[in-house]
Design a protein around this nucleic acid. Structure first.
Length: 231
DNA sequence: AACTCGACCAACCGCGATAAT
DNA sequence: GATTATCGCGGTTGGTCGAGT
């Protein structure tokens, strides 16, 4: 077992104070990002590097958008999730000003429920006959069945296969469900490296996504209800 | 007014990947 | 090639707030 990254007893935990934020901002403005291990000491912060990195990436970065997600952002998240599964950093990389944490939280608190209310399994983006389907999907925000709440607020590990690869392949597997219209999503998953905070993409990964983008994406759109519904 | 419950979100934790030695 | 250090990701937790009773 690996030791905890910050076992020092004199490191702060929990919510960040304004002073701490300011110290971190000032330091990064002067010296730039990177070397998170040594940053806290250099910046005069009683935090572990990991915590500093997270705070900067998720909250303090000047290019963060914050605020509500636009409808097109929602659509994009759903489409990308159908393609990539829980690869939040990859998904966030396609949404300027959004962080993986933000996208992940938004998915778990809003979009999962939205899809379920539309009768779509959020794990594999298939139509789910066991789930209730609203007659009017636009009404989904107001429809929070009490039975569903416990299911949707916290992701379960028991039977939903949260493994992102499995999810991605689930999404991919539903490609084979049948032909249909082939909308040109052109999500451009491979052309640009996501923003500075984005995920590492190995060459294999890139290749995989490229293949998915070039050959399967239209099929994904064709077979996945989410991709059809949100056009 | 007090309490309960659920939703939201910032932050933490554990682990895999990668770089450095 | 093995070991160690560091980074970054995804899953999860816990605090806060607002709505409902």
């Amino acid at each position: 077992m690996r030791k905890p990254c910050c076992d020092k007893q004199d490191t702060n935990k929990g919510a960040w104070s304004k002073q701490e934020d300011q110290k971190l901002i000032d330091y990064i403005r002067k010296h730039g990002e990177g070397c998170w291990r040594t940053l806290p000491q250099a910046a005069g912060l009683l935090r572990c590097g990991k915590s500093c990195r997270l705070r900067w990436i998720n909250y303090l970065r000047p290019d963060l958008k914050r605020g509500n997600f636009a409808e097109d952002e929602e659509d994009l998240i759903i489409k990308l999730h159908a393609l990539l599964g829980n690869r939040w950093s990859l998904i966030a990389g396609r949404l300027p000003g959004r962080t993986d944490n933000e996208v992940k939280n938004y998915w778990n608190s809003h979009l999962r429920r939205k899809l379920m209310n539309m009768g779509i399994d959020p794990n594999n983006h298939r139509l789910n006959q066991n789930l209730p389907r609203l007659q009017n999907p636009q009404d989904s925000s107001s429809a929070t069945s009490s039975g569903m709440k416990s299911d949707t607020t916290k992701p379960h590990n028991d039977n939903n296969n949260n493994n992102s690869n499995e999810q991605a392949s689930d999404a991919a597997s539903c490609l084979e469900d049948g032909p249909s219209a082939l909308p040109d999503l052109n999500l451009d998953l491979t052309m640009s490296i996501p923003s500075s905070t984005s995920a590492k993409i190995s060459p294999e990964e890139k290749q995989k996504i490229t293949e998915s983008n070039l050959s399967k994406e239209p099929e994904v759109a064709a077979a996945s209800p989410t991709l059809l519904l949100f056009q």
